Amino acid sequence: MSVVLDDAATQRKAPALGGREIAAGAIWLALLFVPLWLPALGGYTDLATRVLIYAMAATGLNLLLGHTGGLSFGHAAYFGLGTYGAGLFLIHVTKSLPLAILAGTLLGGIAAILVGPLLMRRKGIYFSMITIAFGQMFYFAAVRWNGLTGGEDGLTGFSRVPLHLGAITVPLGSARYYYLVLALFALVMLFVWQVLRAPLGHAFVATRENATRLRFLGVAVDRQVWIAFALSGVIVALAGSLDALLIGFTSPATLQWQLSGEFVVMCVLGGMRSFWGPSLGALIFIGAQDYLSSITQNWMSYIGLIFVLSVLFFPNGLLGFVRAQGRTRTRT
């Protein structure tokens, strides 16, 4: 009898791994060995780094878009501020890579925190239009402030510097920088996962589903929108600072609303209401962009076609479609 009880207790303590855990483990394992297998498929490490950076930005936006229900077409502003913050810090302050990343994240994040109260009471199209207005305001500031930002020619004169760890200096080539970005990507994904599982994340979803009922329950809905907007802005700014260090250049194009639209497309392609959806969307978008731009000048037309087909046949995104198919098979 005691043996049976011990076996039952062991089964409760060590539940079997589900499909989601196995899939997540496979994803992280594949990401860990990207520099080894990607060149065999015709890719290159910097492309994988760019996918991670844009996946981070799309995940940050999705915290507001998919989970809180706020459609922003101005988040490129915080991405662009992150790029300028990192570049200007390296040029004018000191050659420190961690501090440059921190400076870019703070610049874009503080901007998002300050903008949030000005739009948190708006809904629907009014919310989206105000985000565009603020984004374009930052864009024109970068264009006009020629002496600091380089104007339309962009900001140059900085590059990815080695990482100093006490007495050890680590040069950051393509592979090493990829792993630095991967580590930060993992931290961001862990943070977002914890937020969504916490009461704050449930409040975000409740705001998306029925803000009126939430107000009747005494919850400050406007504050929830502000918090979601601020957190998403900080994450997007972090991605922007990493992007500037990847290519050693930034320009006002990183602040334009078109880039915000690309972030939205990534979220929609993969699935706005799934955790890994924005990352999958970033992989599809950046991969298609890299391949199609190498074979045709009209690559944007094909990207648009992919987006239209996705919306028509996979309205909940690719992961949403896969999840729905899984539920159907389970019922049958």
Results as ranks from 00 to 15, higher is better:
residue 196 L to G: 09
residue 251 S to K: 08
residue 26 A to E: 07
residue 332 T to P: 03
residue 326 G to W: 12
residue 322 V to F: 15
residue 268 V to C: 06
residue 167 A to C: 00
residue 242 L to W: 03
residue 135 G to N: 04
residue 112 A to C: 06
residue 99 L to H: 06
residue 301 S to G: 15
residue 182 L to P: 00
residue 12 R to E: 12
residue 90 L to Y: 07
residue 314 F to M: 05
residue 297 Q to K: 11
residue 176 R to D: 09
residue 189 M to D: 02
residue 188 V to P: 10
residue 52 L to I: 02
residue 167 A to M: 08
residue 26 A to G: 15
residue 268 V to H: 05
residue 149 T to S: 14
residue 273 R to E: 15
residue 317 G to P: 04
residue 255 L to K: 01
residue 222 D to L: 00
residue 181 V to C: 08
residue 248 G to H: 08
residue 20 R to S: 13
residue 98 P to D: 10
residue 40 A to C: 08
residue 206 A to S: 15
residue 36 L to Y: 14
residue 43 G to H: 02
residue 140 F to P: 03
residue 80 G to Q: 04
residue 157 G to N: 05
residue 277 G to K: 02
residue 242 L to A: 04
residue 332 T to E: 14
residue 265 V to T: 15
residue 314 F to T: 00
residue 320 G to H: 04
residue 14 A to S: 06
residue 124 G to K: 05
residue 233 G to R: 11
residue 141 A to N: 02
residue 280 L to N: 06
residue 211 A to R: 12
residue 49 T to Q: 01
residue 288 A to C: 07
residue 292 L to V: 05
residue 71 L to R: 09
residue 268 V to Q: 04
residue 153 D to A: 12
residue 125 I to R: 08
residue 45 T to L: 13
residue 181 V to K: 08
residue 106 L to Q: 01
residue 324 A to H: 09
residue 278 P to I: 13
residue 73 F to G: 07
